[in-house]
Design a protein around this nucleic acid. Structure first.
Lengths: 337, 337
DNA sequence: CCCTGGCACTCGATTGTCCCGAGTGCCAAG
DNA sequence: CTTGGCACTCGGGACAATCGAGTGCCAGGG
């Protein structure tokens, strides 16, 4: 039914359409790729492919264009991820190595990815929930006001100003700090609630109200900020692609954290690439776009995800190569810092 | 030369063009605005206005369109900033009041402004240089590694991980923390270099190398981060405006921190609105756009600026009203927190 | 002196028509 | 199963005609 030659034809159609952005006809195919058969034969194959929904013709007397299903088959079975050139690898490395803190790592990564793929790059901040507490700091600001700072092993810092029920002296601050750190140091963020459940009971009556307030803020921070921050870059590349229709929708989607969350949300194996094509996307405004995502993390835990959004008609092998490479390098950087 | 009636005509042209987005002719003007004169008279006035460069006709037999110079005159002398409605004010207030930290204030502000004006909003983070140190914190992470946290009176937090030349114990950390806070508390950030110049001399030989390292990082942070962070929102509104040409340039400009810096950069009095129209913009890609900016700050110091970017053909009175109002409210929020 | 109505003119946009060519589907022969 | 031939379809570009909004100018009137 779908023999090898038909697959070869489909591959050729995808490749040509991606590079020319014009519906591709049987003659052009026969010329450009040496398939060893005549245009007429190709026409027959095309008819079969269309019958099965892999390609589609915009109007009679036009060439064929791959459907989402066609791209899917292409990605799954007909293409190989294309590794980056040595020069590109080196560029990534030096560019990312210059980053001094988490913010900058993320910012540089997203720009890098956008530039590399000439599309829109999306990067999620390393997850709080999957990282561990490295340190808790309590900074007195006034008698009844402190700043609470949570530092994680991924270099992320969360801070909140807290108003306390009682005034509190430096010595008690030091004590609470010591207690909190003893309880939480190295603790996975998702385990924090368990770890601190009985903490107030172990404290003096004097310390208890303050501790309760602090703990509730800590827990709140962990929950509220569970919605992870996501940034994007390269919107200008959208305008270059001939996105005439729907550009507005795409821009809107990019500014909606929720939509981005859902885009990235799917869990996949680390170093496994996820490709979402056209109508496979969870959001209506993103029909017509495809999304290539990968998880990244320090060591072997997946901390967060990043990806690239572009027209359905994108160069999948190259894009996938770039995403995979960048994800790996970011992981290395995070592990090394 | 430019008598009152001509100005009225210019005002009418700007208003009509802004609302219809079509070149406006003499007949339409006579109909819609009761200027008390006939179309023929208006034609004469228009000819004069064109002669002086305030308006322009795309082609013979088309209506007139304001030039940048025309808009400039309109903004300077013919329009009044339009205050927001009560409902809008209340919405702003409640929306901004819910923010819990600086990041969220800025994020909410930029979204609010974008939504309010249906254009692209740009907000600069409150300047480090004009704020004061509220607290310096040193957090030991490992023997020879600490995290340095700088908290400012605007709620901004800067943190850096620092590798030290020597191992350092908790007691020495506490000592250094005390010394640094004693020197820097309440100090304007721009005065920090002076304030700490002689600090190493006042320390024991043992503490000196560590202190020097820390101070150099502090100074570095102040200088490097002097390039203030700028965020924007509402890019989708660009697509709605008929920006067919140049959209790409505009998006590129928005992602270039440098360009945004220059856009916002001009100093103006606090609560003074700056309007940059079309070719008055510092960046080529932004011809065709206008920018309305205002400074904001807690109390009477200007801390940073915010603004709105839109097509030259924008509703200036309304936009200016929104920018001014938002700037004031953000100031209040910052002052109150 | 300025305003007004009239009039001829310009020119972009719209509509309709025609034609071309790329590309198809089908069929009969190899 | 492949191939060459052939009739057919249909989008897009070129061209012409028409329409109408808007202008500039001029002569007459307050």
């Amino acid at each position: 039914m779908v023999d090898d030659r038909k697959l070869a034809v489909l591959r050729a159609i995808v490749e040509d359409y991606v590079s020319t952005n014009e519906p591709v006809g049987s003659k052009a195919l026969a010329d450009r790729h040496n398939l060893g058969v005549s245009p007429a034969t190709i026409r027959n194959d095309m008819a079969a492919l269309e019958e099965q929904g892999y390609i589609h013709q915009p109007h009679t007397s036009a060439g064929r264009v791959p459907t989402d299903k066609g791209y899917r088959l292409f990605v799954d079975r007909l293409s190989q991820v294309k590794p980056l050139t040595g020069a590109e690898r080196r560029a990534i490395e030096t560019f990312l190595a210059g980053a001094i803190d988490l913010d900058e790592i993320v910012t540089r990564t997203v720009r890098l990815l956008a530039q590399l793929t000439r599309q829109v790059a999306v990067v999620q901040y390393p997850s709080l929930t999957r990282s561990t507490v490295r340190h808790v700091e309590i900074v007195p600001l006034a008698d009844r006001r402190v700043m609470l700072v949570l530092i994680t092993n991924t270099g992320r810092v969360e801070q909140r100003v807290v108003d306390l029920p009682d005034a509190i002296g430096d010595d008690r601050v030091a004590h609470l700090r010591a207690v909190l750190n003893a309880s939480l140091d190295g603790c996975g963020l998702s385990n924090v609630p368990d770890r601190v459940a009985d903490l107030p009971d172990r404290l003096s009556a004097e310390d208890r109200p303050v501790a309760v307030t602090l703990l509730s803020v800590i827990l709140e921070t962990l929950v509220e900020r569970h919605e992870e921050k996501i940034v994007f870059a390269g919107a200008a590349n959208l305008a270059a692609a001939d996105f005439s229709v729907g550009l507005r929708d795409v821009l809107e989607a990019l500014e909606e954290q929720v939509v981005l969350m859902r885009l990235l949300g799917e869990t996949g194996d680390l170093s496994e690439l996820t490709v979402r094509i056209g109508s496979e996307n969870p959001y209506t405004g993103l029909r017509g776009t495809s999304f290539v995502a990968a998880g990244y993390g320090a060591g072997d835990k997946e901390l967060a995800r990043l990806g690239v959004l572009g027209p359905t008609r994108m160069d999948y092998p190259v894009t996938m190569g770039a995403v995979r490479a960048v994800a790996r390098y970011v992981g290395q950087i995070l592990a090394g810092s």
